[in-house]
């Protein structure tokens, strides 16, 4: 209860301050703008895509970019722009959802282990170690066999693997932070562990977490491509950027645009994420602000 009132009453909160600072960072704003437009396109794809995603034209075959097909077509004569737009829906969804799952579990798990310490920490981190040691592929194959193949499961499976590193980073951060006097001060004020973690520890550990998150999103997208390539993820005619890239790579000598354009879509997303991540880290670090 008390915390809700605190949040409401803050006036300028950490996040509002951060937003004000972020607005001054052009590169970060550019990244944010690019990401937003990608997400918007992904959401609106069914209505704005120039062709149907499964429309083939075998007579056409693979053609370079033209006025009818802006980014060319693949060997089945499917429009590449349409493919990239539909692929973006899956790739972005996997990237954001799986990372969000990883972030939520990892940060909570790591913060609790790091703050409580002692035996609880030992048990929690051994669990992380065991999961690390588990062969990832077997884990996913098992999941698919038991529950059947579906997209949601893919999100969860990837998220369930990616949170491990997040938890370790968070635990390390919290272990250094909890020895600081401001945490002791918070305890002596009578704050409970949950509030201390949420209000005093997590905000101070955000820097490395944000940087790691911006690195996780693209790696999750590639992981999805890998799984799809093995037949464990998305299947044609559905597609994703990862799949488009791996098909493109096979034929890049004859039809380079099939690799170039999906590759560009992923690279641009990655750049945008990095710019935004750097900007966010700086914006959240109150010490960097000159005002």
């Amino acid at each position: 209860m008390t915390d809700i009132t605190l949040q409401a009453e803050k006036g300028t909160s950490l996040w509002e301050d951060a937003w004000r600072r972020l607005k001054k960072n052009r590169l970060a704003l550019f990244g944010l703008g690019l990401l937003t437009s990608f997400v918007l396109v992904a959401l609106l794809t069914p209505w704005i895509a120039p062709y149907a995603y499964d429309a083939q034209n075998l007579d056409l075959g693979a053609t370079p970019p033209s006025s009818a097909h802006w980014l060319g077509t693949d060997i089945f004569g499917r429009d590449l722009l349409t493919q990239i737009m539909y692929g973006g829906r899956i790739s972005l969804a996997v990237g954001f959802v799986a990372t969000a799952v990883a972030l939520l579990i990892g940060v909570t798990w790591g913060a609790i282990a790091g703050y409580v310490g002692g035996r609880v920490d030992a048990v929690m981190m051994r669990i992380v170690d065991i999961l690390y040691a588990l062969p990832f592929m077997i884990f996913i194959v098992l999941l698919m066999v038991v529950f059947g193949r579906n997209l949601l499961l893919l999100f969860l499976a990837i998220g369930a693997v990616e949170w491990l590193t997040m938890a370790r980073i968070m635990r390390g951060q919290v272990q250094t932070l909890r020895k600081q006097e401001f945490v002791e001060a918070a305890i002596s004020l009578g704050l409970g562990p949950a509030t201390i973690i949420r209000r005093h520890l997590v905000p101070n550990a955000l820097g490395p977490i944000i940087v790691y998150t911006t690195l996780t999103i693209p790696s999750v997208m590639l992981l999805e491509a890998f799984l799809s390539f093995l037949g464990l993820g998305v299947q044609p005619p559905e597609t994703s950027w990862g799949l488009l890239i791996s098909y493109g790579a096979e034929t890049m000598e004859e039809y380079p645009w099939l690799l170039l354009f999906p590759g560009m879509a992923l690279t641009l997303t990655l750049f945008a994420l990095n710019f935004l991540g750097d900007g966010l880290r700086d914006a959240l670090d109150v010490r960097r602000s000159a005002d």
């Binding site: 605190l6 803050k10 300028t12 600081q180 006097e181 401001f182 004020l189 209000r199 905000p203 101070n204």
Partner: peptide, 15 residues
């Protein structure tokens, strides 16, 4: 060290 670097004076005193 005894003040949370990410909390303003207001946050620190209101808590």
């Amino acid at each position: 060290a005894s003040l949370n670097p990410r909390m303003s004076v207001y946050d620190t005193l209101a808590e």
